[in-house]
Computed example of a mutant assay.
Amino acid sequence: MTTHAVPDAAAGTNAVPAVSLDTLLRQHEVEQFYSYEAALLDAHRYEEWVALFTDDTHYFMPLRRTMTRRQLHLEFTKPGEMAYFDEDKGFLETRAKKFATGTSWAEDPPSRTRHLITNVRVAEDDGTELVVHSNFLLYRTRLKSDTDQWVGRREDTLRRTEAGLAIAKRFIYLDQTVLQSGNLSNFF
């Protein structure tokens, strides 16, 4: 395995930054959690997916607007403003149960999806909650030839529970400002 030296300005030398075993184990735990979550979604196991969320969760996907550089702070809507999703766990459960009935016109026949999660970064860890940033690509195909793709980033708060990690907050930021899809019935 090749390592790349990173300049150490203070020492004037090239040094590979040290990573502790605890940091590696935490990163692995988070990435495995996201892989499991994506597998549940792609297998249409929505009720099991919703069980990964805490009872006080906030699931939010704001609208994105094209703004000038001076107005980038207004690019995304805020909680309480217009949004694609601004949901609690009860609402997520209702959506998951509706999909399970087969009466959701937007998901009958069901979409075929692939959730790809990349660039997972643990930004904060206070021992109880972790703030995790990641990028995603959600590919969906429906019927014979309908395809959609959504690309963006997620900012999650993961909470350590007796059962393992759980999603206490998920904010989803799409790269697109205009959605070309016929509906937005999938989970991110």
Rank of each mutant, 00 (worst) to 15 (best):
M1Y: 09
T3G: 03
A5L: 14
A9G: 05
A11Q: 13
G12R: 02
T13L: 11
N14P: 00
V16F: 04
T23A: 14
L24K: 12
L25D: 06
R26D: 09
E29A: 09
F33A: 07
Y34T: 06
D42W: 05
A43C: 05
W49F: 05
V50I: 13
A51N: 03
T57H: 03
M67S: 04
M67D: 01
T68E: 07
R70G: 00
L72T: 14
L72V: 13
K78T: 11
P79Y: 09
E81I: 06
A83S: 08
A83L: 01
Y84N: 03
F85D: 00
F85I: 12
G90T: 13
T94P: 00
A96S: 06
F99I: 13
W105G: 07
E107Q: 09
D108T: 15
P109L: 12
R112E: 09
T113C: 09
L116E: 06
L116N: 11
T118I: 06
T118E: 07
V120K: 12
V120Q: 09
D126W: 13
D126Y: 10
G127N: 11
E129Y: 03
S134Q: 12
L137V: 15
L138Q: 05
L138K: 02
T141E: 12
R142L: 12
K144A: 15
V151K: 09
G152H: 07
G152I: 12
E155M: 10
T157W: 14
L158P: 14
R160H: 15
Y173Q: 02
L174P: 14
D175H: 12
T177L: 01
T177E: 09
S181M: 13
F188G: 08
